[in-house]
Amino acid sequence: MEAKKTNKKREPGFLRMETNLFDRIFIGVVIFVAIHLLWMRFLESSISLTVASIISLVLIFVIAKWG
């Protein structure tokens, strides 16, 4: 019955726990928001926020793919 699920459970990636795609995207978005908030507070005076967006988008992709 497990196999019927489309959000297939698979071997844990570098997050070291069982996750489906939804879980990993969720984690990615949480990190995305956290990076932006911290960036605005501490780094934005010197580095533009766009850099944060790029970094976090890459992170979301990495987590969704290999997490």
Binding site: M1, K4, K5, T6, N7, F22
Partner: peptide
């Protein structure tokens, strides 16, 4: 039932 994404 096993609902798709039931956990979520």
């Amino acid at each position: 039932y096993r609902v798709k994404g039931g956990q979520n």
